[in-house]
Each structure stands twice: as structure tokens, then as C-alpha cells.
Design a protein around this nucleic acid. Structure first.
Lengths: 220, 220
DNA sequence: GCCGAAGTGGAATATGAATTCAACTTGAGA
DNA sequence: TCTCAAGTTGAATTCATATTCCACTTCGGC
């Protein structure tokens, strides 16, 4: 199984490409062109393809540790004695990472087809956050109607502000987060059966939108 | 100036194309292909191009009345005696329209290059909403630190949930709106100089991202 | 230093949507 | 009915990004 090690120069290029690709994806998002990566790294694009024939794999390699970092944040948040303090701290920390890394935000907030790595990452975070949430409710810090899915929702909401304001007011998301968290505490939410796996469905890809047609039957 | 009227059959096609294009953009968003439109309408794509050589113009034609409708909602909201009731009603109505029309949401929430029509539309809505906001604050229904830009922010936030949940739980945005509005009422927001035209900047297009390069100086 | 496997560059090609256009209809006025 | 400007079509072309591939280097073992 053990692949033969790369030649010295190839290994150097590989690292350079990883660095470069990460810098670009952190700044511009996951959809940077292989050509951009190659150019920025000063290699030919053939080299990028040779080393990373599958973009998803490249992304996984680049962001694995970042995802772990978020999981770690969730763990630390669970250490808080005050569950609400832990929850708000986690949200802020997570979003701060995303603010500094566009690609990470895209992965965590979905919208693309997610790799196993990302799915598992979210699956590690969700229960930790849900636990914090449950404890906060038990402590009377949050209304009982708040669901784990609401945390995902808030994440999406604040993330949208971050995306929209990135080049205008890079910290506006903090204000949005303040609003969202206050809303969670004070909103009178309708009770709702813990229709969980709503979370999973939220991140599931919209399925194959087969027949684009049939959109419009001209009125008779 | 008066263009000669279209031939009967051409006029029929034009209408059919408008209907079809609107149906598609309402369902799938503004980026539907001219070919999709043509196919769905049963014409050749050349016909679409002949009639609507500029996509932005097509979009303007299709959505002008929808935008007017939103402006009208804002007007009606201003009639409310209770400003907060008016504001929440407006937000909900506006988002409801967007929920039924993906393209409208894209226009109103920006992200694309906006046409004059859209910019003017937003410019008609903003002061109405801002007025409602000011009155709500004066009535003690909202903290004084809430700014008009916060309404835009909330719009973006709820819209993001709508987009993410559209095919999973088409009403989830209502829950998000409840949270956001409650947050506005209860959040302790830092005072902030009415840096308005923050709103305009939020919608301004990210400028020409010239040189993609210079992203990564390989570490020495 | 020599050799071949490993590695590289970037032109060539594949894709897919956007746009054009020349050959082919058709409506409607004389 | 006849004519032709107006209208239509879809194949061909343009663009832009994705992917392949092979002639040309370079590394590292002998």
C-alpha cells in the first residue's frame, strides 16, 4: 500500500501547491481555477492535475485540519460551566475562522456537494452543539422550543451577512451574530417536533434536478 | 421613436417567451440559459436573442412589476399605526414574495450586478423601511441602536435560510424571520454612527477583482 | 557521467454556455 | 394570389474553463 515517496523536487512542488491553493481558496473560495493555482505557484497546470487529479481530494487535504479545529472549538465550548456562554463563544469562534477563510465557510455552510470528510466533520460538531443547547435550555438560558437545527440556521444567516459584507465591512457579521443570538433567546418560536435530520437534509445536495423542462405549460 | 408594432406571430412569441422566462426564473433563479427558455417555450433560441438581446433588459421587463409590488408593500406597511407591526408585516410579506419567486429574491438581495431598475427599486424601499424603523424606535419598540442597515442584514439572513431550505422545508425562513426580528428587539447592539450608504455599499458590486495573482508569496 | 523512471509545461482538446448568422418560413398589404 | 420585409431556426462560432497528453527536463541510483 505504501506509495513510493515522491522525488525530492516533486515533493517540494506538492507542498508549494498546497500552500498556494490554500491561500487562494482562503481568500477567494473553493472555486479557484486550477490554472490560477498553477500560475500563482509558478508551475504548469499539468503539475496540479498530476498531483491532485480530484479537486475534492485537494480540498479535503487542505481543509481537514481546519475542520478539526472547529470540532476542537466545539469541544472546548462544552467545557464551559455556563452553557450559553459556551454556545455563544463557539459560534463566534467558528465564524471568526470562517471570516478569515472563505473556503472553510463554504465547506461548513454547505451549498456544495460535501465530501465524506466534511460530512463527518459536521457530524462531530452537531452533537456537541446540541448538547450545549440542551444544557442551556435546562439552565433556563434559552426557550425550550429552540432546536439544534436553529443553530445551523443561525450559522447560515450570519454567514450570509459575512459573504455579502466581506469587502465592505468585514466585521458586520458580528453584529448579525449578536442579533441572531439575542433572537434565539427571546423569540417565541412555535414548538416543533424535533424533526432532526432536518439538519442533514439542509446540507444534502438538492438531488439531481433532472428534466429542467416541464417548467411551463403554456396556458390554453 | 415609436417602434413599428411587431407582427402578430412575433408578438405572440414575445409574450410566450416572457411568460416562460418568468416561470423559469421564478422557479430556478435568474441564471437560466437562453436555450432552456427557448426550449421550454418551444421556439429556437435565436428568437429569444432577437427579442431580448440583453439579458438584463429581459430581467427588468420581467421583474419590474414585482419590484413595484414590494415597494407597494412598503407603502402599505407605513400606513400601520403600530410601526413595529408595520415593519414585521412588511418583512414577512416581502420574503413571502421572494419565497414564491427565486429570481425576485436574487434581485432584491443583490449579489449580482444590479440594473438601474433594481437600484431604484431598492432606493424607493429603503427610506420607507427606515421611516418605519425610526418610528418604531421612537415608540420604544426597538432599541435606539438599530439602524436601517440592520433591516437589510436581516433580509439577507432570512433569505439565506430560504435559499438553503427551499427544497427541504420551504417555510423554514419564517422561523428564521421570527428569530431575527426578536433579535432586533432584544439585542444589545453597539451604537454605531449611522454610517449609511453602508446599505448601498452592501449592494455595490465587488469592483473589478483585477490581478488574481499576487495571492501567495511563497515563504522564503 | 549515464540512464530511465518520474516529473513538468503548456499547447491541444473537450465541454458547455453564449452569441451570431445565413438559409429558410410566414404574415399581411397590394 | 404574390411579394418581401419580418420573423424563425439551429448549426456554427466564440469564449472560458476543465482536462489530457506528449515532447521535453530532471532527479537519483549505478
Amino acid at each position: 500500500m505504501a506509495e513510493r515517496p515522491l522525488r525530492r523536487d516533486a515533493e517540494r512542488n506538492r507542498r508549494l501547491l498546497l500552500e498556494t491553493a490554500h491561500a487562494l481558496m482562503a481568500r477567494d473560495g473553493l472555486e479557484v481555477t486550477y490554472e490560477e493555482i498553477a500560475t500563482a505557484a509558478g508551475t504548469g497546470m499539468g503539475t496540479v492535475y498530476r498531483r491532485f487529479p480530484d479537486r475534492q481530494e485537494l480540498v479535503d487535504i487542505l481543509f481537514a485540519e481546519h475542520i478539526d479545529a472547529v470540532v476542537e472549538l466545539a469541544r472546548q465550548a462544552c467545557q464551559y460551566d455556563d452553557p450559553w456562554a459556551g454556545l455563544t463563544w463557539f459560534m463566534e469562534q467558528q465564524l471568526e475562522l470562517e471570516a478569515g477563510n472563505r473556503g472553510l465557510g463554504q465547506l461548513l455552510r454547505g451549498g456544495h456537494q460535501s465530501s465524506e470528510l466534511v460530512i463527518r466533520g459536521r457530524a462531530r460538531i452537531t452533537p456537541l452543539a446540541a448538547d450545549l443547547l440542551k444544557r442551556a435550555i435546562r439552565a433556563g438560558q434559552l426557550p425550550a422550543a429552540v432546536l439544534p437545527a436553529d443553530l445551523v440556521t443561525i450559522h447560515l444567516m450570519v454567514g450570509a451577512v459575512m459573504d455579502a459584507a466581506r469587502h465592505v465591512d468585514p466585521d458586520l457579521w458580528r453584529r448579525a451574530l449578536t442579533v441572531a443570538l439575542a433572537g434565539l433567546q427571546h423569540a417565541e418560536l412555535p414548538a416543533r417536533q424535533p424533526d432532526d435530520n432536518l439538519i442533514d437534509r439542509l446540507f444534502a445536495v438538492p438531488a439531481a434536478p433532472r428534466d429542467k423542462k416541464a417548467a411551463h405549460e403554456p396556458a390554453e
